[in-house]
Design a protein around this nucleic acid. Sequence first.
DNA 1: TTGCTATACCTAGCGCCACTAGGTATATTG
DNA 2: CAATATACCTAGTGGCGCTAGGTATAGCAA
Lengths: 112, 112
Amino acid sequence: MIPKELAAASSRPLVLAILAKGDDYGYSIIQRVKEASGGQIEWSEGMLYPVLHRLEKEELIRSFWKQTDNGRRRKYYRLSASGKRSLTVHRDQWNSVHKTLSQLWGTEPCFS
Amino acid sequence: MIPKELAAASSRPLVLAILAKGDDYGYSIIQRVKEASGGQIEWSEGMLYPVLHRLEKEELIRSFWKQTDNGRRRKYYRLSASGKRSLTVHRDQWNSVHKTLSQLWGTEPCFS
DNA sequence: TTGCTATACCTAGCGCCACTAGGTATATTG
DNA sequence: CAATATACCTAGTGGCGCTAGGTATAGCAA
């Protein structure tokens, strides 16, 4: 279980990172995060959708509707140019904090 | 500049990690964090003191007053047994998220 | 037919927490 | 005798995860 503060800090970077790999929609993003984290991170819909709406409002991502074969509709999101830039900023900030924490924990800092 | 969500996620782990190295007081903790982060993380007092009070309320840390030579008083904090346990939990949660992010960013995950 | 589950979207209200913007007090320095 | 650094505190605000609901379609089983 990931505490809410850590969830808040990682939600934007995670969504941006996933969309950097290709367009995706909400329900699928939740499953991807769970998969990528080995089941450690389990997002609720009530957590993700507001994040997506905020990112779209900030124009870091754009949305468009798509129909599947069986008629079910999905709202896909695509990373914008500024979203790509934002992703690297988030990554640098994260790594900066991670380096500090690793150092204090007495383990080797991770420069990746 | 570290965004507020990332600051929120790292404040507890950072304070616990610093106190794990020895007793310390508020004003000094702010400087230690700035130093340890290479100037990247600059905490305000209005951010740190509530954190310390919360941690004390949760009994993860304990406080005691001390007089310096020049007569100025300082409120020192010490990590409790449950605080030490909490530190490792925070570290594991952090590393879990970090591993996921690193993986999605396409860099080698950091297992430290 | 009638549920039940999975998929797929949405939001109002609550509570936590960083941050702003103040306040108090003492020691040092110009 | 101000200005700065040290050292503590807190009320109010806004952002955001989360709970707990809602809507709707597809597929499957009783």
